[in-house]
């Protein structure tokens, strides 16, 4: 069943997944528990970036409002917990359904526009969510909401310890990677990718592209809400800040750094982003300046992101980037 990928990029990703799978043991041995926190955070954002890449990369729908779904997912943990409902299944079901409904309604409107208008309207909708939570005094408004206890699952699925939460995140990450891969290569994915490059032709072939793109948008939102649900559990404290439009912008950067419309790109981009942020901010308070210059350089010179850079050593690049 298992074959080692023949190309450099494939091998690098296999190695990365192996390291991530063993990370808790490695960090325990190195006595660096802080980095497990950092890694959990990075992988949670990684899931969000993978979900964004599904619409932004494969589908060509550039959303500047995806962080709203992180927020929705997180508050679907926070608000029930506030009323002492701690069931993890309830949190997960709420996150998936609320994000699906919100994405269906806002997507149905947003997808009537194209290009810059789509960017603006997705941002507007996410700001609506942002200000809604900002104004809800009951749930802490801008002071945020403390989640006193993590979502409750059966014993073997518990996410109570740092390590078990990490493996929850890692499992969800693997699921979203696998799901994205299957989806893109299935009938549905062909239509999505085809519509990104030539919508007119896809319609002439009999595809109602609007319906397919809307479905893709909803799937992506639901995936992102899982990241939000995990984030709520991870942070133990949530505030509207987690879904500001700058967070949506960061997600776009993570996707671009790693490689648009590639399977592992968003994950790699997110890890690099989070680590850079961490280490640069430890060096100087002016780290945003250095970070900005690095991002600009990466976008300008590193066409195809890190994935493009890795696979420039491979003979063939099978992705649609």
């Amino acid at each position: 069943m298992f074959r080692l990928p023949a190309n450099l990029s494939g091998r690098s990703y296999a190695l990365l997944l192996a390291i991530l799978a063993l990370a808790p043991f490695i960090l325990e041995w190195a006595n660096q528990p802080f980095y497990l926190d950092l890694l959990s955070r990075a992988l949670i954002l990684g899931i969000a970036a993978i979900s964004l890449n599904l619409i932004l990369g494969f589908g060509g729908m550039i959303s500047l409002g995806h962080a709203a779904y992180i927020g929705i997912g997180a508050y679907c943990v926070g608000i029930p917990s506030y009323y002492d409902y701690y069931s993890g299944w309830l949190h997960l079901a709420l996150a998936l359904s609320v994000s699906a409904i919100f994405a269906l309604v806002t997507g149905a409107i947003s997808l009537r526009t194209k290009g810059v208008y789509f960017i603006m309207i997705t941002m507007a909708f996410s700001q609506m969510v942002f200000f809604t939570f900002l104004s809800m005094e009951e749930y802490g408004a801008d002071d945020g909401l403390v989640i006193y206890s993590r979502s409750e699952f059966p014993e073997w699925l518990s996410m109570d310890s740092g390590v078990s939460l990490y493996y929850w995140v890692f499992a969800m990450l693997l699921l979203s990677l696998m799901f994205t891969h299957r989806l893109v290569h299935a009938r549905f994915g062909r239509v999505i990718v085809g519509s990104r490059f030539n919508e007119q032709r896809m319609q002439a072939l009999g595809f109602n592209t609007y319906r397919y793109r809307l479905t893709c948008y909803v799937i992506s939102a639901m995936m992102c809400s899982v990241a939000g649900m995990l984030f709520g559990n991870f942070a133990g404290f949530i505030s509207p800040d987690i879904m500001g439009w700058t967070r949506s912008g960061e997600l776009i950067f993570m996707v671009i750094i790693g490689g648009v419309a590639t399977f592992f790109g968003p994950l790699v981009g997110t890890i690099v982003f989070v680590l850079l942020e961490e280490f640069l901010s430890a060096i100087t308070v002016y780290w945003h300046l250095i970070f900005g210059v690095m991002l600009v350089a990466l976008v300008l010179f590193g066409k195809g992101g890190i994935h493009g850079w890795l696979s420039s050593w491979d003979r063939k690049d099978a992705d649609y980037g």
Partner: peptide
């Protein structure tokens, strides 16, 4: 396009 819907999410084309 000419053969049914394309809401197939799993089997590779």
């Amino acid at each position: 396009g000419g053969s049914g819907h394309s809401f197939g999410f799993w089997s590779p084309v």
